Amino acid sequence: MTHVELPTAKFGPWAVVTGASAGIGREFARQLAAGGLNVVISARRAAPLAELGAELEQQYDVRHRAVVADMSQPNGPHHLIEATADLDVGLLVSNAGDLVPGEFLGRELQYAFDSWQLNAGSHLVLTHHFGQRLAERGAGGVLLVGAAGAESGIPWAAAHAAAKAYTNTLARGLHAEFAERGLNLTVLTPGPTRTELQSRRALPETGGTTVSNAVSTALKALKAGDVEVTPGLAARVLNSLPASMSRRISGRTMAAAAQSTVSQ
């Protein structure tokens, strides 16, 4: 299976991957391990982490550490920080996130706060902490996972899109600051990607890119020092549209997904 090898001298010996139990996060862990990096894998569910950790050690002869932490809660990032204090971390892949389409006014306000914490706040806290550690060692990188089209706003996923837009913008701004310290920082802004999330949230699976392509494209961009990368033709087309058209297309998709989820 494909993978992108990152120089261990800069990005190793340990990489931290959040949201590693499935989808893009799991593939990040696999490709990094295939490239010879030890990996800290973190997610809310213990069982998938244990399964993944055993697989990585057996197939790629690397070490792993599993950290169960909920990034939608304020103490989640801090738990991960404490659990990795003794490791020489050269790379942070802050990937944790989720999307549940639905009407803003049809939910409790707490949902929006939790969405921001998961899709933006956790990235902010982890980037600041690990960024400081990487600056002290003089080498390393951060890869954040945002979303394509978030800045245009997405009806029936408004709070989610706003949080992802924050992450996109944070990364673009920090890219130059990190470069001044010899660090790489890239934001992956995926559109439709064929993961279990697509089926779980009744989102269309056609026209999307694969997780393998999304991750390898992101790691190539990080290695090259690029600020942003958007894999997949569908996502790039969506990004090129006027904001009003992007909102209309995305809104119809999310409205249909929300209705399908309610009717299940």
Rank of each mutant, 00 (worst) to 15 (best):
M1Q: 10
H3M: 07
V4C: 07
G12C: 06
G12T: 00
P13E: 11
V16L: 12
A20V: 09
G25D: 05
R26H: 12
L32C: 02
A34K: 08
A34W: 04
V39Y: 04
A50T: 11
E51D: 14
L52W: 06
L52H: 06
Q59M: 07
H64K: 07
V67H: 00
M71Q: 15
G76L: 01
L80Y: 06
I81V: 13
I81K: 09
E82G: 12
G90V: 09
V93C: 13
V93G: 09
G97R: 00
L99M: 14
G102W: 02
E103G: 06
L105S: 13
G106A: 11
R107M: 10
Y111N: 11
Y111M: 05
D114K: 14
Q117V: 13
Q117W: 03
G121S: 07
H123T: 09
L124E: 10
H128A: 12
H128K: 14
F130H: 06
L134A: 04
G138D: 11
V142Q: 10
G146A: 13
A147D: 08
S152C: 08
S152R: 11
W156C: 11
A159S: 15
H160W: 14
A162E: 07
Y166G: 04
Y166M: 08
R172M: 10
E180R: 13
G182N: 10
G191L: 02
T195E: 01
E196V: 13
E196P: 10
Q198G: 13
L203R: 01
T206I: 12
G208N: 05
T210I: 07
V211Y: 02
V211W: 01
S212A: 13
S212G: 14
T217K: 08
A218M: 08
A221Y: 01
L222M: 12
A224Y: 04
P231E: 01
P231R: 01
A234G: 07
A234T: 15
L238R: 03
L238S: 14
S244G: 11
M245E: 03
S246D: 05
S246W: 01
R247A: 00
M254G: 00
A255H: 14
A256Y: 01
T261Y: 04
